[in-house]
């Protein structure tokens, strides 16, 4: 049995905190550990920030829909939007030293998403763009 939760908000930076709170509250209720919750919030925040600042750029922003599905083994986060789709590409580990030496810095967000999630899938279709992030739950330690 899985539990499903959904929240829909306008794609604006003001919504980021609300979306993180939503993940925080549902994860707490489902007994997800702190570290996993933080990683889910981080991945969702980075992805939504990209959608808000690039996907919905130059228009009155549309919706961001966040679906959270939690079962005994994993947490699946689906982020749906209806803005411009992104070009699929490989994430690159950011080079902080180069960044410090005055080279352009970007790509941290994408790198974090891939680093903290177990699976990342992106689809742009007629019905909208959907980013699916999967995080396996830490196995419960059974005391002997």
């Amino acid at each position: 049995m899985s539990q499903k939760f959904r929240i829909a908000r306008a794609a604006e930076l003001e919504s980021l905190g609300v979306l993180r709170d939503f993940i925080h509250d549902q994860c707490a209720r489902a007994g997800i550990d702190d570290a996993t919750t933080y990683e889910l919030k981080l991945a969702a925040d980075e992805a939504c920030t990209n959608i808000i600042t690039h996907g919905y750029a130059q228009m009155n922003p549309g919706s961001l829909i966040l679906d959270l599905e939690i079962d005994a083994h994993q947490v699946v986060l689906r982020i749906t939007d209806f803005g411009h789709p992104f070009e699929p590409s490989e994430p690159i580990a950011p080079d902080v030293q180069a960044a410090l030496d005055d080279q352009p810095t970007s790509g941290f967000g994408l790198f974090f998403i891939y680093s903290v999630m177990d699976a990342v899938d992106y689809r742009a279709t007629e019905e909208g763009n959907c980013l699916m992030l999967t995080k396996r739950r830490a196995p419960k330690v059974v005391p002997v």
């Binding site: 690039h54 411009h84 070009e87 699929p88 490989e90 790509g107 742009a124 279709t125």
Partner: peptide, 17 residues
């Protein structure tokens, strides 16, 4: 499918056949 360079698709949003 890999996701999300910061590049947006240059072609219009047309993903159906």
């Amino acid at each position: 499918m890999q996701f999300l360079n910061l590049r947006l698709k240059q072609t219009p949003h047309k993903v159906a056949p």
